[in-house]
């Protein structure tokens, strides 16, 4: 059976057992003694040099292995990471979407702040006291009434027949309010009429909305009807609000628009002019509701661009 020796099988037996058991016993006892001593910290004279030798062997060997195996370790790492990669990708995508949204929000906030600044500039020049608002809808209820809804209401001190302005000029007037919202009738609605005057002149008239009911907002325009048929009016003249009694529904001095064309109406009692609105009414964002009219008529102060508002105000008053 065994090719190893002539005596083969018969040599295993009682003769072998005592020796191997003796070896085992000696080894186990020394091991346990070592263990007991070292666990109590009593084996320091043996353990410390031994460990120093071990460390001296280990450090270069481990360094060499590390050097040789770094691509391998990288591979193992990637394999391990593979399981979590999909999760991680999803997580990062979500975070990315969130950050992009924040970026958009930040841009929108910056734009809104610019508009608010301009609005404040306008109201500062005119001396109006406003409540800033956001145009949240632009409903033309059945397609022909031009109104917008603002996110301010009675709660904010907004009431009916208040003037609504944007950084560029007049928007319209508040027609109805609830606690939290206000409806604004735009200048360009056909039922809207605003007392107006030419900049720098005493010529007065009425600005009517001229939106074409059928075609929606395609050509929003205003028609300025001057009461004096011989009034000197030409293209490029600016039109400001005249102001109503007690500042309702319109405060004085707000830019309405620019004369785009003058119609000759011989024989009529009044003159007509096409006026393009100062405000792009189809893209309203930040507006202000004038809650208190200026103490005195700002006249042309709002549209004066060359001089600081306070100086201009002194000049005009």
């Amino acid at each position: 059976m065994s090719p190893l020796g002539p005596d083969g099988l018969g040599t295993v037996g009682p003769r072998a057992a005592p020796r191997s058991r003796l070896v085992l016993a000696v080894l186990l006892i020394s091991g346990v003694v070592l263990l007991a001593l070292d666990s109590r910290g009593a084996a320091a004279p043996v353990a410390e040099p031994a460990r120093a030798v071990g460390s001296a062997v280990f450090t270069p060997a481990a360094g060499a292995v590390s050097f040789a195996a770094s691509p391998l370790e990288w591979g193992v790492d990637s394999i391990r990471a593979g399981a979590q990669t999909q999760e991680r990708v999803t997580e990062l995508e979500q975070e990315n979407a969130r950050l992009e949204q924040e970026l958009v929000d930040a841009g929108r906030d910056a734009g809104r702040m610019d508009q608010l600044t301009e609005l404040l500039e306008l109201t500062d020049r005119g001396g109006y006291e406003i409540v800033p608002a956001q145009a949240i809808t632009q409903v033309s209820a059945r397609g022909y009434v031009e109104t917008v809804t603002l996110d301010v209401g009675e709660r904010d001190g907004v009431g009916p027949d208040m003037t609504v302005v944007s950084p560029q000029g007049l928007v319209g007037r508040v027609t109805s309010v609830t606690a939290e919202h206000a409806e604004v009738l735009l200048l360009t609605d056909t039922t809207s009429a605003v007392g107006a005057r030419l900049e720098g002149e005493r010529e007065i008239g009425v600005v009517h909305g001229e939106s074409d009911a059928g075609s929606g907002f395609t050509n929003p325009g205003l028609r300025f009807e001057l009461l004096d048929a011989s009034a000197p009016v030409q293209e490029g003249d600016r039109v400001l609000s005249l102001g109503s009694h007690d500042g309702a529904p319109f405060v004085p001095g707000v830019p309405i628009g620019t004369v785009a064309a003058v119609e000759d109406t011989p024989g009529e009692l009044s003159r007509l002019a096409e006026v393009s609105p100062a405000v792009n009414l189809s893209r309203l964002d930040v507006v202000g509701v004038v809650v208190a009219e200026p103490e005195e008529d700002p006249r042309d102060a709002v549209v004066a661009e060359d001089l600081p508002a306070d100086v201009q105000r002194e000049v005009t008053s």
């Binding site: 065994s2 090719p3 020796g5 083969g8 040599t11 295993v12 003769r15 072998a16």
Partner: peptide, 11 residues
């Protein structure tokens, strides 16, 4: 391996 103790496990 022929001391007996190891001879059996050689093959």
């Amino acid at each position: 391996w022929q001391e007996g103790e190891f001879s059996l496990r050689g093959d």
